[in-house]
């Protein structure tokens, strides 16, 4: 149903970007800004960087982090500290050189002029949606449902406004400290009753994405979801990051995803 832009492995490069800034947003939640990418680095919304947190053997694997934006040579990543890898990345200081592989994975389909798109993001899951909203063509309308636990975790998305397209941000918080008191999928449901959307983009906790998918499928709206699965190589070789499709096939989230057609995911089996 939805059209995904499949990455060719050859687009991926080994990169040594420099840390420009680390901005703390809340406890264990930060923005990592990287610069010094080559001309040939042209990430699409939804793609990720596979970052190596250390040169040592522990933690061993790279961490796949979606790009929130890539503008004027600066890549911004929104990261929640969930373990040793994201903790080490948090400790990076301006000028530090990182080991990054990318851009990797599939992208969200382009948001065309005249299209209305509903974006449903929870927590750090908003990052690839911000990238998709930034790339929306002039004349597009984006309703951006942004759900977080509490007001302190909201990052300013002012840079999305004042553009030639219309991007409306609808904040919701679990504790009611800002915007709608409750889930962002509740806001999404209300919006879906008012307007017909060309497609829904979602990224965030599995339960939230499953709800967003159900809202879309009940109304026969295409849904594109960005999945998070424990990843190995990021290149499609190790077959470690698979998830199951309704046909019982296994699809790799690194190469066939992370952005996938919501109708191709077995939402109940998780």
């Amino acid at each position: 149903m939805a059209v995904h832009q499949r990455t060719r492995q050859s687009e991926a490069q080994l990169l040594q970007p420099k840390v420009r800034k680390v901005v703390d947003l809340a406890r264990r939640l930060y923005l990592l800004e990287l610069e010094g990418f080559p001309e040939t680095f042209r990430p699409k919304p939804g793609q990720f960087l596979h970052l190596r947190p250390t040169k040592e053997d522990y933690p061993l694997l790279r961490r796949p982090i979606s790009l929130q934006s890539y503008r004027d040579g600066v890549a911004t990543l929104l990261i929640r500290e969930v373990g040793i890898g994201t903790e080490l990345l948090h400790r990076a200081r301006p000028g530090d050189c990182l080991d990054a592989l990318g851009p990797l994975g599939t992208a969200y389909s382009p948001v065309r002029s005249g299209e209305s798109v509903l974006m449903v993001g929870g927590g750090v899951g908003v990052a690839p949606l911000v990238a998709a909203a930034l790339e929306a063509e002039p004349g597009a309308l984006v309703d951006f449902c942004y759900g977080v636990a509490t007001a302190g975790e909201i990052q300013s998305l002012d840079f999305l406004s004042g553009r030639e397209n219309e991007i409306r941000i609808h904040v919701s918080t679990d504790d009611g400290s800002s915007g709608h008191h409750g889930f962002c999928t509740e806001v999404a449901e209300r919006l879906l009753e008012e307007r017909r959307y060309a497609k829904i983009f979602t990224c965030g906790p599995w339960v939230m994405m499953r709800k967003a998918f159900r809202l879309g499928s009940e109304r026969k709206v295409p849904v594109e979801a960005s999945l998070e699965v424990q990843m190995g190589c990021g290149l499609g070789a190790c077959l470690g990051c698979v998830y199951e499709t309704p046909d019982g096939d296994f699809i790799r989230s690194c190469i066939d995803g992370p952005v996938v057609d919501g109708y191709g995911v077995s939402w109940e089996n998780h």
Partner: peptide, 23 residues
Amino acid sequence: RHGNPPPRLVELKSALLNSIGLQ
């Protein structure tokens, strides 16, 4: 071969546990 059901990877200290199942 279809391989094993996920999850297929667990990161350990300086090691990796996998059960791809020869997909």
